[in-house]
Amino acid sequence: MSDREFIPTRIAILTVSDSRSLAEDKSGDTLVKRLEGAGHILAARDIIPDERADISAQLRTWCDDPEIDVVISTGGTGLTGRDVTVEAHRDIYEKEIEAFGTLFTMISIKKIGTSAVQSRATGGVCNGTYLFALPGSPGACKDGWDEILQHQLDYRHMPCNFVEIFPRLTESERRK
């Protein structure tokens, strides 16, 4: 850590599930508890079914909202026919953060061995907003937050972090 002051980010949580309600959303609850415990702000929360167009639409709506800095989704990252969250994310990414998925896989291997190959966690940027798709289990959400996101969403984390480059995410638009 550095001597920088903490800067809270405004985070939206989207749970993708055909079967869960908000009352049964343990993965979403895990993320909310962790982000608020770290000093961030829950800006929005919703749960929607595994429908690619609906997921993309919700992600885009939140990316267009100046009161949301980060969107974290949980669920729909597996290999079944209904798992379309990764595709929905990629529908709107301007840039993909390839190393997010790679790092998540490396962390998962330590916990679940070769089963980590079935996760397709992803990260990207759209309209100056960070997006991250985590698997739907509470354990995967803990791993994604505790091992990656809590550090990268903390301005005090050195040598670099996602927060310090927020102002530069849309600099190509300023050049036009």
Rank of each mutant, 00 (worst) to 15 (best):
S17P: 04
H40I: 08
I68V: 14
I109W: 13
I41A: 07
A23T: 08
R174F: 08
E24V: 10
D50F: 07
V84H: 06
G78M: 03
K95H: 06
I13G: 00
M158I: 10
A12G: 07
I13P: 04
R168L: 07
S172F: 09
L79H: 12
T74K: 06
S27V: 05
Y155F: 15
A99V: 10
S115T: 15
I72M: 05
G123I: 10
I112K: 06
L59F: 06
I47H: 10
S21C: 13
I92S: 05
R82G: 06
G144W: 00
G123T: 09
V71D: 07
T85A: 03
V16N: 13
C141D: 15
A133R: 01
D50K: 04
G28I: 02
P167S: 02
L131I: 14
I68G: 11
A12S: 10
I48W: 01
V32Y: 04
D25R: 01
R175W: 12
R52P: 03
A116R: 07
I41M: 01
F100P: 07
K33I: 07
R82L: 02
Q150K: 11
D46Q: 05
I92D: 03
D54E: 12
I107F: 12
A133P: 02
T129H: 03
K26S: 11
I55E: 14
C141I: 05
T61M: 12
Y155D: 08
L79Y: 03
P8G: 12
F162C: 03
P8A: 09
H89M: 03
K110E: 14
P8Y: 04
D154M: 14
R20S: 02
I47W: 00
A43N: 07
F132V: 13
F162H: 05
G113Y: 02
D18I: 00
S56I: 06
S137F: 09
S172D: 09
S56E: 06
F104G: 02
R82M: 04
L14Y: 07
R156G: 04
F166P: 10
T170F: 15
K111F: 14
G144R: 02
I97T: 11
T61I: 07
A44H: 14
S108Q: 01
H40S: 04
Q152D: 14
L14C: 04
E51A: 09
N127S: 03
G123A: 15
E87V: 07
Q152K: 13
L42N: 09
P66L: 03
A116P: 07
